[in-house]
């Protein structure tokens, strides 16, 4: 028996929206640790890894490991029927061929359940080694989305160059070229900003993207890599999950684009670089 109840159903809805255009069918692995997914896009250029830890759910029960193969477009259709403030419960029997999504509104006076057929998906599971990356960039997820969107109107690929003081995004196309440089902001800017207001004294709030780029760089070695913007734009569909995005880069390795999911886990996207031959 698998049963997982998430109070903030909007998180699950957002997660699905962020991956459903990249991956068609995927196996969700339900274990005592949590609800996880690893899948490649159809071209095998990128990979998504999702982890929703059991401790982040309001209720979680997993008697034995279950693999649930789902069509993500169909799953998204079902989750779209849940309101953002609904609680969502997923249920499946160990040997069953359906998953049930149950939605409850905050007043608990409307309860819906949707059953979706599971599928057998034959897929290879890839081992992702722990890697020390040469460059780690943390920046506003809104800014990253904006940069990828803006550059994709000029070119198809982006070259990301990280130095200790800045991260530079470059593209070129038929109409010309573009460079966007985000300077590393001073220490501590990424965390929290203290704002003094007259009424309530000192108030702590997260910095908004409008106040700057909030770029934090951890660098072992300067790195320059080129990626297809189409995929990065797809990853940016996860923007609403987290205020910040973390990019990890190393020479000739896939970039890792990570969005943390508050108190629950993460969605990580891996994208293989383009190389000049």
């Amino acid at each position: 028996m698998f049963e997982a109840r998430i109070l903030q159903g909007s998180i699950l809805k957002k997660v699905l929206e962020s991956i459903k255009d990249l991956v068609t069918d995927a196996n969700f692995e339900c274990t005592a640790n949590g609800f996880a997914l690893q899948a490649m896009d159809s071209s095998h250029v990128s990979l998504v890894a999702l982890m929703l830890r059991s401790t982040g759910f309001d209720h979680y029960r997993c008697d034995r490991d279950v693999t649930m193969g789902m069509n993500l477009l169909n799953m998204s259709k079902m989750l779209k029927c849940a309101d953002n403030d609904d609680t969502i419960t997923m249920k499946a029997d160990d040997a069953g061929d359906v998953v049930t999504f149950m939605f409850e509104n905050p007043k608990a006076d409307k309860i819906s359940d949707f059953q979706m057929k599971l599928m057998d998906i034959d897929t290879e599971h890839l081992g992702i080694p722990d890697t020390e990356y040469e460059a780690t960039v943390k920046m506003s997820s809104n800014e990253f989305q904006r940069i990828c969107r803006d550059l994709s109107s000029i070119g198809d690929t982006v070259t990301i160059a990280v130095t200790k003081d800045s991260v530079k995004f470059t593209t070129s196309g038929d109409i010309g070229e573009a460079n966007i440089t985000c300077r590393r902001t001073s220490d501590g800017d990424m965390k929290e900003e203290k704002v003094k207001t007259e009424e309530d004294g000192e108030k702590v709030h997260n910095t908004k993207s409008s106040e700057g780029q909030n770029v934090d760089i951890d660098l072992q070695e300067p790195v320059t890599l080129t990626f297809a913007l189409r995929y990065l734009n797809s990853f940016c569909k996860a923007t609403s999950l987290c205020e910040n995005v973390r990019l990890q880069l190393s020479k000739e390795l896939p970039v890792v684009v990570q969005y943390l999911i508050e108190d629950m886990g993460y969605v990580r996207f891996y994208l293989a670089p383009k190389i000049e031959e």
């Binding site: 081992g127 994208l271 190389i275 031959e277």
Partner: peptide, 14 residues
């Protein structure tokens, strides 16, 4: 000429 690498060439199959 720029070519796109594949993700499976970086991570081994388990």
């Amino acid at each position: 000429y720029v070519s796109q690498l594949h993700i499976s060439s970086f991570f081994r199959t388990e």
